[in-house]
Design a protein around this nucleic acid. Structure first.
Lengths: 345, 345
DNA sequence: AACTGGCACTCGCACAAACGGAGTGCTAAA
DNA sequence: TTTAGCACTCCGTTTGTGCGAGTGCCAGTT
């Protein structure tokens, strides 16, 4: 791609900013009048023609104003990426909300989703941190009825997994407690790998439970990502580009298929570092249902330990200058929270 | 309201059924031709005029066909309420899915929401059963880091509540375990009321924990309803009456405000019995955002023990003949599941 | 008395034609 | 290199027209 002159760059940025605001094709005259550039509309027209030639702009019809192409948005985003900053006041408000909430994961996730959605006016997605390596801390077995047993498994990081087991035959609570106590002693602090090579003797029940524990621990680490929290679904319904019926349906249906969504989140950020921020514009050719959308997405957490993904989906014409710093800031905040929680032990 | 002749009734039912199918105003001619009633269009016109006079039908414009009014829908629903039946095959499929799923509450809720949405082509809402009276079964205290302690509380019905406590000072795991053991012995099978009058001696910690347990148990029973599961949000976007931008937004935004939704569910079914089924048409004047919608809703569970609410939201022109029996059937199914789960002890 | 056929009338909707405006590209002059 | 001017394009809106579906009513039939 050819390089832009300073003037072209200014113009391009201006056009895109204006288009993001107004959702209307931008014409040369309007540009010359509205912003006090010392250029006539004719000159601007020439530059616009050049920018169109280079693929950054596009004309919906022969005689309409210009509209950014995906390429244009990419340029815009890469230019403003570093400069965009969230106002201090907003940062404080957000931090405050987090430190005031109850210190529980689902509270944080819900809050993060809510903040992202309201700040960006888009649809937010927050995937709970996915544990990459986990260590056993504690197991509890509680007989509920007949052959059913409630198993509560606590990991060192503080994750809790509960599951109802159905045993082959009823087992008394005392025997369950015994097994739990023995296993707790034996497994404390062990990784999945270490546990998988163990064999337990005294009671055959112990070995059964051990396998179930392993299975649960594997389930925790194998899932592509944690539970998904979402907010602001109705935000995009108001956007003018989604005034036709089908646009929003296609975009929103992604949120109804958790599998697809997790796949998307996993794929797009699997090779990116925590702290880095990705902007997917127009589905990047890969996701047809997102062709009209953009996705600002970041990985958060502690690499190698527990990381999650969060982001905002909106129309391609989204308020990047607001969304990008917000996503970055919230990701940082969640990283700190996750890190605090893990480092506790 | 005046009573309808047999012929008027037949006609009204036919018109509404047809309108539900086609979403088009129904004219006398079309009616006379399509269905083989032995009546001329003129006669039908007279009857239609009468039905319009009585408030069951409405003309969008002077010279368009007739469209049902809310009153019309109410009549329609009350007439077909008892007769509507879900095909046996569908019943079996649904039961099968439930008994094949993992026996856990959130699985059931998700499944119920999914089934309701797909069967009715509307938006489903399932509120997890709200425990009306609960008995203590087991508590577990696990120190996580510093002053933070994970408390896992298990109720007799099998509900589990976990919470992170922050104590005034760090407490060793042994002391926590001691407290847990003592409390388990003391509180087993007790109701909230019974527990609230107890005092515990040996370790002051015990009393602190006791209060936290109480608080948690109260929280469980005081919430208006359980967590809310939803599915099929995108279903109503396709409906022709929501082709304008604002309709679906207003309806869907209800789902973004859990508080409002819980309120709605609680209010509308608080005085209704389990097994009974309510149909709210056009928001019943109360809910402005639902003016274009209908809500088929039922309470399920075991009265006095644990009940929840589930329902389907759709356009006023919804497929009642499909939705009503489905809601009724799924409510019955969930009632059985809840009942099995509770009666276990 | 109830039903039907016929008729005049009313609108909404779809389609076409006309218009205005915003914007463009190009050229020639500063 | 920039600018002013001009001819042209094409969209969106408005206006006009005809069609069709539907209605209400009345007079005639069963």
């Amino acid at each position: 791609m050819p390089t832009l002159s300073e003037r072209q760059k200014t113009l391009l940025m201006l056009i895109i900013r204006d288009y993001i605001d107004t959702a209307q094709p931008i014409g040369s005259k309007r540009l010359a009048e509205h912003y006090h550039i010392n250029l006539s509309s004719a000159t601007i027209r020439n530059e616009m023609a050049a920018l169109t030639e280079m693929g950054y702009l596009r004309q919906p019809h022969t005689s309409a104003g210009r509209v950014p192409t995906e390429e244009g948005y990419r340029y815009f985003v890469s230019e403003m990426m570093h400069s965009a900053q969230l106002p201090e006041a907003v940062q404080h408000t957000i931090s405050h909300q987090f430190y005031q909430s109850r210190p529980e994961l689902d509270q944080w996730m819900t809050l993060a989703a809510s903040i992202l959605a309201s700040q960006s006016q888009g649809v937010s997605v927050v995937a709970a941190p996915h544990v990459e390596s986990t260590k056993f801390k504690h197991v509890e077995l509680i007989s509920t009825q007949g052959r059913q047993v409630l198993m509560v498994l606590v990991m060192l990081g503080g994750e809790v997994s509960q599951q109802i087991l159905t045993l082959a035959e009823p087992v008394a609570q005392e025997r369950l407690s015994g097994a739990a106590t023995r296993l707790n002693g034996l497994l404390a602090g062990q990784t999945t790998q270490a546990i998988s090579s163990l064999t337990v003797r005294p009671d055959p029940l112990d070995q059964d439970i051990l396998l179930l524990i392993l299975q649960d621990m594997r389930r925790l680490t194998e899932k592509a990502s944690g539970e998904i929290y979402t907010d602001g679904l109705t935000n995009i319904l108001g956007e003018p580009e989604f005034s036709e019926v089908d646009g929003p349906r296609r975009a929103l249906k992604i949120f109804e298929e958790p599998a697809t969504l997790q796949d998307l989140l996993a794929k797009t950020t699997s090779n990116s570092n925590v702290g880095a921020l990705q902007v997917l514009i127009g589905g990047e050719g890969e996701y047809d249902d997102l062709r009209q959308c953009s996705l600002v997405i970041a990985r958060y957490g502690v690499p190698g330990m527990a990381t999650g993904v969060l982001g905002v989906l909106g129309p391609m014409r989204m308020a990047y200058s607001r969304t990008i710093p917000t996503v970055r800031f919230v990701a940082g905040l969640l990283s700190d929270l996750v890190s605090d929680n893990i480092s506790g032990e």
